[in-house]
Design a protein around this nucleic acid. Structure first.
Lengths: 358, 358
DNA sequence: ATGAAAGCGCTAACAG
DNA sequence: CTGTTAGCGCTTTCAT
């Protein structure tokens, strides 16, 4: 506790510690870092002095010497939105454990600002950069031949050789499909976001593939629209019109699912008795506020962040050995390319199994 | 562009630049920093060499010398949740403009982790710390007599002398009340979060005070409950029971408002024709997804963050002059104590004026 | 077992 | 106008 409460810790250097312990600076350094051999008594004296004075080694000096900064940059274009935050937290988790500190930058999705920030991070000698986004759409990379490794998390570089960690949209769709099939549903509709989104297409593909494997097709058309509740309400009406006997709806987002739930209720369909409902995102305020609470696909964003951080650390460790960072070495296995993190399903009321079927 | 794309910028030092420009290191330094006078030709030669080599001054070395790091820490206990993010963005905005970089830490609301991170930030020689939270409840400070200034944003230290920037909950309540009164409502109910939250009490107080000024009282009791949609649904039923003639409801959060809206609709009350509705937070996914879209109080979180950053910078500038940081100097005016940022009202459908009243 | 000295990359004095 | 020197705080040889 002394170190925090013991008065203004004004720039106490190792010199002060050495003086207080009556040893040379070099000896003090060794004592503090546990290097070299020395009499236990001496070491203790130094440590005691350091503790008493509230000594903190200056990381700038250490870094200057070691040629390292133990920092990485975290760049988001998403204003640290709903998707990038869990990713960030996961990353910070993994990095923090390794004593790596994180510089945060928000680019407001502006390439100019992004460029600017990347420059700044490099100037600060970060040892790596994580780029996060709101959706998995491929985006231009933040720069070619950067002097530090870069990992894209929850977004993807258009450059295939860049390392990207993305959620398993297709698997999530399949997961939802299997769950609905397993609970006895067979007339499964799909209301989702704009078709131009890779995520929407992949989720739909996961669903239809899984249905096809069971000899089924989606009820009605796959309804592409917007990522909004409003669209969920409209889409549900369309679906009820084209496939009145629908007994389940898989939605491309929890927001859409809420809209769908609302319309279903107003049209006299009970959820989950008449129609089961599965969302996507596990955005808790939405999923829990829904009536009934929503079964939904969880992309494991935290895991994506953790994995991104772990990869980055590996890459840093790799390049630190002065190996040329550009080469996509075929040996590394996970070095380079896209890593897909499996999604999970969170079960709630909206798909509770109806009365057991004979 | 060369600096980013021109190959692996492997640790090019000022020494390299000097060599390339055929000048001494000192001269190179002066040329790069625009200090001292020198022949334009020499300066240009150095700058050209620096550009060509992709030279970036090492901030560790600069900082070591200057005794500054141009970094601040941003600590949140809120997992960078919905409230702390806009605050962060505002702060990052203000700081980024001043070339200050931000170290991000999430404490998961764990005092141990918090302590740990604060230690780490101090070890990194941040020049100041911003602490953000999810609610304005006063909390123990992060430490006494820290060597750097601290600003609490969207949260408050229990120590009155600490600098805190908080939203105007009371003013927000008053704003909602005035708006409803101005649109001709007189039987105004209030459904809000748990009474133990200062924010809930203040919002309620702002409302009742304003109503009292108009010779009115809240319709029914002020209903304290939870910060959830579910409670909004229940609360609305209670309100309709105790004050069936209610013509407006002010809600302590947008989530509550959504619940209220839902119940009102199901009970046959039209919003806004029969009952006007005002939320709190301007949480867009909620406020826009609501039927109808919600008029709501906006706490100006970004502004809170910006202000926190600005204050912090001022304090840093102040302490940098080696003035004892502890003293709560009575001169500074805004130095020390609590700053309240005014709230605003975002008008949407849920309070659209009914047919003009005679 | 301990101390002295060199040097990480840079800037700011002072010499030349 | 330019070069040399010292030193920021620390670690790490290498002498002692």
């Amino acid at each position: 506790m002394a170190s925090l409460s013991g008065g203004i810790a004004k720039a106490v250097t190792i010199r002060d510690v050495a003086a207080a312990a009556d040893v040379s600076i070099g000896t003090a350094s060794k004592a503090l870092n546990g290097r070299g051999r020395m009499r236990a008594e001496t070491r203790d004296r130094v440590l005691a002095a350091a503790e008493r004075l509230g000594f903190r080694p200056n990381p700038l000096a250490q870094g200057l010497l070691a040629g390292r900064t133990y920092t990485v940059g975290l760049v988001t274009g998403d204003s640290f939105g709903r998707f990038s935050i869990p990713v960030m937290l996961g990353a910070e988790d993994a990095l923090g454990a390794g004593q790596i500190s994180v510089f945060m930058c928000d680019t407001r999705d502006d390439p100019i600002r992004e460029r600017h920030y990347v420059e700044r991070l490099l100037a600060r000698r970060v040892e790596g950069i994580i780029v996060t986004g709101r959706r998995t759409e491929p985006r231009p990379g933040i720069g070619r031949d950067l002097p530090v490794p870069v990992v894209y998390a929850m977004t993807q570089s258009t450059d295939e050789s860049d390392v990207s960690i993305i959620p398993d949209d297709e698997g999530g769709g399949a997961l939802a499909a299997r769950h609905l099939l397993a609970t006895g549903r067979t007339r499964i509709g799909h209301v989702t976001g704009p078709q131009r989104f890779q995520a929407a297409r992949r989720r739909a593909h996961g669903l239809t593939t899984e249905l096809a494997a069971a000899g089924l097709e989606p009820a009605g058309e796959v309804l592409f629209g917007q990522w909004s509740e409003e669209w969920g309400r409209q889409g549900a009406d369309v679906l009820l019109h084209t496939a009145p006997d629908v007994d389940a709806v898989f939605c491309g987002s929890d927001q859409i699912a809420r809209g769908v739930a609302e319309t279903l209720r107003e049209r006299g369909r009970r959820v989950p008795e008449d129609v089961a409902l599965v969302g996507f995102d596990n955005w808790e305020p939405m999923a829990l506020g829904c009536r009934p609470p929503l079964t939904t696909v969880d992309m494991n964003l935290g895991e994506i962040g953790r994995l991104a951080a772990t990869h980055l650390l590996d890459m840093i460790a790799g390049t630190a050995g002065s190996r040329p960072p550009a080469a996509g070495s075929p040996d590394g296995g996970s070095s380079g390319g896209v890593t897909i993190v499996p999604a999970g399903l969170v079960l709630r009321e909206s798909t509770r199994r109806a009365a057991p079927q004979s």
